[in-house]
Design a protein around this nucleic acid. Sequence first.
DNA 1: AAGAATTCCAACCGCGCACTA
DNA 2: CTAGTGCGCGGTTGGAATTCT
Length: 244
Amino acid sequence: MAVMRKGPWTEQEDLQLVCFVGLFGDRRWDFIAKVSGLNRTGKSCRLRWVNYLHPGLKRGRITPQEERLILELHSRWGNRWSRIARRLPGRTDNEIKNYWRTHTRKKAQERKKKAAAAAPVSPSSPSSSLTDNSGASLREPPAEEVAADGALELNCSVGCCSSSSDSSVTTAFGEIYDHSDAVFKGYSMDQLWNDISMPDMATGLSFEEFKDEASDIACPAMPSPLWDYCSYSLWKMDDEDFQA
DNA sequence: AAGAATTCCAACCGCGCACTA
DNA sequence: CTAGTGCGCGGTTGGAATTCT
């Protein structure tokens, strides 16, 4: 058994992953990991996709508005990062978590300094800073933050996969795309999956042949409805969250 | 200018939950 | 009912980039 690759992703790997997620959707990560030929675990693929390659991701720094929202939601839900992330379209739990970490650490340090300056002894609980959101005096973000609007930047850096043979590829996988589309018209994912894993169904190729074909082809541009679906589904509001 | 400190961010790990056979 | 499997979540780490001294 080959040893799984770890560490930073290469551009080539990104391309491959984007390609296969485009084909199979952002589920079944173990399957994608295997089929794509990426020597990565499904887990690793999912992480890379969710945190970096997803087309709906916003690039750039956390804006003051987002910062306020994070504070508010964290006071409500604590470290439920994924839940908080759902309230911030384009932001990932990882991003928010990272932000919060540096932010609170900084605040804790400031508080320590203040406490040390004001009083020689401070018996207050040390961990309270984590859930403390009284932070009205937050770090003033640099002006450039406001310009943070990198959504879909990915399409240029990675997602466009500008293949010279786009059209031929699209026809080769056209059926698959049609099936992806069907998911949104009432197909269940499982139905789709059955179709895909059945030899000779979608592409006329056996699965192994299809796999080879796919790994040979520079990824087509991804105009698939999957993109829309992904960017919608990942960030869509979750009604029950607001009821809490 | 250089080294130290801090911040940012990508990635990994372990755990728990949900689903399925 | 239970064991196996896959996925998602939260915590943590480590390196690159940036800022400070």
